[in-house]
């Protein structure tokens, strides 16, 4: 096995933990400070939206600051996933490259909405219609962009089903392939939120928010677990083989 991969297992473990810590910070600022969990209904009028930002304005803006600091939490795990994929691919690791690039660009849709909500709270006393506009922009930016995410998942699925490593030692056991495939199938609910202001298909509803939120959390926890397990195995290999 390529020696350079052994040298970096410690860094890779550090990056996985960096993702976990930043994700926790993001969750705290999103749930506790911005208080967008559960999301405000998509049907709110301008007069109903404005107080979301003007009341507890400073708390909200502190939430924005921590959201902006931690919003890139997916980047470290994305890089580690691609390193693990490249280990298993033959020749040019095309799926690892696709996964890394789409994952890194896709993370924009996590922290950019936070910045947009930050703009909404920055001059909260402005005309309510203007706040409504930027509020809706932030929410649609957060929930509906889909183009990159399925491509990112596709690479993981392909590697999970084509690798030649036993499941117990791989970062991508076959069940992870199926879990990721489920995530891919499920992700298509997001853009449907563009059509709906009320009910389970709106951005605060079961389809675009709750189901993807639950599944994505489970998926992220699962892939952190399998990647850490694989790294531990690779470290042992390096220790005994070296």
């Amino acid at each position: 096995m390529d020696k350079s991969f052994h040298a970096s297992t410690r860094s890779q473990r550090f990056l996985v933990w960096l993702t976990i810590v930043l994700a926790v910070v993001f969750a705290i600022s999103y749930v506790g400070l911005m208080r967008f969990f559960p999301p405000p209904p998509a049907s709110l009028s301008a007069e109903e939206v404005a107080p979301l930002y003007s009341e507890h304005n400073i708390r909200f803006r502190i939430g924005v600051i921590f959201g902006l600091i931690s919003g890139g939490f997916l980047v470290p795990i994305t890089i580690v996933i691609s390193l693990q994929m490249a280990r298993l691919e033959k020749g040019v690791p095309i799926w690892a490259i696709l996964q890394a690039l789409t994952g890194v660009v896709g993370t924009v849709f996590v922290w950019l909405p936070v910045l947009v909500w930050g703009v909404a709270s920055f001059t909260a006393e402005r005309a309510p219609e203007l706040t409504l506009l930027i509020h809706e922009f932030g929410w649609l930016l957060f929930i509906t962009p889909l183009s990159l995410f399925p491509m990112q998942l596709l690479g993981i699925i392909v590697v999970a089903f084509t690798k030649d490593e036993p499941d117990g030692h791989s970062a991508f056991p076959r069940w992870m392939g199926y879990l990721t495939a489920w995530q891919l199938v499920q992700s298509f609910g997001g853009p449907i939120a563009v059509l709906f202001k009320t009910g389970i298909f709106s951005w605060a509803g079961l389809l675009p928010f709750w189901a993807p939120f639950a599944l994505f959390s489970a998926w992220l926890a699962a892939i952190c677990y399998t990647v850490l397990r694989a790294l531990r195995h690779q470290q042992q290999l390096a220790a005994t083989g070296g």
Binding site: W175, G177, Y178, L179, A181, W182, V185, Q186
Partner: peptide
Amino acid sequence: GEAGVWILLFGE
């Protein structure tokens, strides 16, 4: 199929 696919099937 195999056990893994039933995660996806039952989940969906």
